[in-house]
Design a protein around this nucleic acid. Structure first.
Length: 558
RNA sequence: GGCCCGUUGGUCAAGCGGUCAAGACGCUAGCCUCUCACGCUGGAAACAUGGGUUCGAUUCCCGUACGGGUCACCA
């Protein structure tokens, strides 16, 4: 180990002139009311927003905004190799559709806020200030790598070979290697530097894994964390920090109070605790959130991975799920008393729910489409006809041009369709996604209308024709619902069908059928389907001419 | 394999030493009803396992099994 850390630090970071103290002054503690939480979302711009990612994001957003704090966006673009062009913008737009908005950070159009820059790739100088301090304090050392070693890094896919690895041998080799690297001398450092050899900065870990320290995670509860003894990388050879180092520096300087992330970070927590300690930073609170699982072909639980259907948040938009519905589902999973609250507050927005960290699940959960569908159905049933119209139309414009055409040509007409059975205590729940709209409204549009269901064989065509003709003879669009239905009952009676369901059920043999059958004759002719919303209302919306035309067409085609 | 986390019906879950072990989704029987969509009343269905501690364990402790996560110059 090099004793003269001052000289080493100057050698490694001659360009760094600022001190950690100056950094502290530059990014002072936030002036926020007591209890206000500062949280962040720190995506790496490598793709779409993952459904599972919605968990930590939502918790972060809720906790910050519910407490009058700050929720900011930090782009963690420390891995240039994996970065995807435009991914950051895509993430922001997607989240915005889901009602997740940031107070500060790397928002669209540039940085906003006093704690930036908010892209890690632009914070290099800041990290180096603290890297230098760590070297100075004897907590970090350079590790030079040869070209061959660098080359090997590119070709070896450690992930792919994960099962075949000899873990023990590997660990021993690593340990030996680490010890050797620590023995580098000042002269060797100079030589390498002069030769232009790249190096990574490693932490000099003095932990003992045998020693476990107690740590309280706000979600997981009391944990036992073994001390870290692994000399993990702080700065990569390009001078950009790894996640661990960037996390410590950024969350400290940006004054994050609550670090909210997936539980896959739990194994790294020991490293982070150690780093905060070496840096002299106060540890923020941590919430490690359980993973969202999916059932694989073999019926085994698996982490919902990127390739799974339903992993990409944008998939839900395409499938026609409204963002509010997805968020409602997420809330039911995030807080176990959410559904109870919802029953008591059916009309409130989910942001009014008092989110409670204590009510968060400690174990992971399985994604359940049935539950999503149910939640979704309920959310849509409570929307206004106008809201349904607007969202359905927006979806149709992107996904179904024919439907979009129908809906947009007469907004009032479309809204009258969506108003059916809406607004009361027991609203209809026909729509789960916007993709359900077309088969639901098709009967109201001649260009979508067709006879989709057929009459059961046990009814004679003559009876059907007789009923349809009789209806046409007496049909008056101005009738109220009772008068309208009385006429149908009269037709039923005249044909030997029971007009009263109770009478029919008491003695079915006495009749050829009942008024429900007669209604069905009409329903198929008018709607093309065996099942449809209340027929009186349907006819009112369709109007006299179309009702008559469809019934006549049916009589002719039978 | 080491380390970490978890384990209540098919799924999400309440429970925090004494309960007939909530509720929701799904499934299911029936009622209501002009069909559907609602709504209503029921039903089947669970504390992984072995030891402790205790008058008493789903609840506390230890082990086992099972599940998950992680072990990069990725986050």
């Amino acid at each position: 180990m090099i004793q003269d850390t001052k000289q080493l630090a100057e050698l490694l970071f001659p360009h760094v002139t600022m001190t950690p103290e100056e950094m502290e002054e530059k990014f002072p503690l936030r002036n926020l009311p007591e209890g206000a939480k500062v949280t962040r979302f720190g995506p790496s711009p490598t793709g779409f927003v993952h459904f599972g990612g919605l968990f930590p994001v939502t918790v972060s957003e809720r906790l910050a905004h519910q407490s009058g704090g700050v929720f900011f966006l930090r782009i963690e673009d420390t891995d240039a190799k994996r970065e995807i062009e435009g991914a950051a913008e895509g993430l922001i737009k997607t989240l915005s559709r889901y009602g997740i908005n940031f107070d500060e950070g790397a928002v669209l159009g540039g940085d906003k806020g006093d704690y930036g820059p908010y892209r890690q790739s632009q914070r290099r100088d800041i990290y180096h200030v603290f890297a230098k301090k760590l070297v100075l304090d004897g907590h970090a050392y350079p590790c030079f790598t040869s070209d061959e070693e660098l080359e090997a890094l590119k070709t070896v896919d450690k992930k792919a070979e994960i099962k075949a690895r000899d873990w023990q041998a590997e660990a021993e080799a690593q340990k030996a290697q680490m010890l050797k690297q620590r023995e580098i001398t000042l002269d060797e450092v100079k030589e390498n530097l002069e030769a232009g050899n790249p190096f990574v900065l490693r932490i000099l870990a003095d932990g003992n894994p045998e020693i476990k320290t107690k740590f309280t995670d706000l979600v997981k509860g009391n944990l036992e964390i073994p001390e870290n003894d692994e000399d993990f990388v702080l700065l990569k050879s390009d001078g950009i920090p790894t996640y661990h180092f960037a996390h410590a520096v950024d969350d400290h300087l940006m004054r994050t109070t609550h670090v909210i992330r997936g539980e896959e970070w739990l194994p790294s927590l020991a490293k982070h605790i150690q780093l905060f300690k070496y840096l002299g930073f106060r540890l923020p609170k941590f919430l490690h959130i359980s993973q969202l699982m999916k059932l694989d072909e073999n019926g085994a639980k698996k982490k919902l991975s990127k390739r799974d259907m339903g992993a990409n948040l944008d998939d839900y938009s395409r499938m026609g799920y409204a963002p509010d519905c997805v968020m409602e589902y997420v809330m039911t999973l995030l807080n176990s008393n959410y559904e109870e609250w919802r029953m008591q507050n059916p009309d409130k927005h989910y942001t009014e729910f008092p989110f409670n960290i204590k009510k968060m699940s400690v174990s992971g959960c399985l994604f359940d489409f049935d539950k999503l569908n149910d939640v979704s159905k309920n959310v849509i049933s409570k929307m206004s006809a106008d809201a349904v119209y607007e969202q359905a139309l927006a979806w149709a414009k992107d996904n179904d041009a024919e439907l979009a055409e129908c809906l947009s040509k007469d907004a009032d007409y479309a809204k009258s369709i969506f108003a059916i059975g809406r607004g009361g205590k027991k609203p209809r729940k026909d729509l789960t996604t916007w993709a359900d709209v077309k088969p639901y409204v098709d009967l109201f549009y001649d260009e979508l209308f067709s006879i989709k269901d057929s009459y059961a064989e046990n009814f004679s065509k003559e009876d059907i024709k007789t009923a349809l003709s009789a209806f046409l003879d007496s049909f008056n669009i101005a009738d109220d619902m009772n008068a309208w239905f009385d006429k149908i009952k009269a037709i039923a009676e005249s044909m030997g069908y029971a007009s009263d369901m109770k009478a029919y059920k008491a003695n079915p043999e006495a009749y050829k059928g009942n008024v429900a059958d007669v209604s069905m004759f009409l329903r198929v002719a008018v709607t093309g389907k065996l099942n449809a919303p209340d027929m009186y209302t349907v006819m009112q919306i369709l109007g006299y001419d179309r009702v008559v035309a469809r019934i006549k067409a049916m009589i002719n085609n039978l």
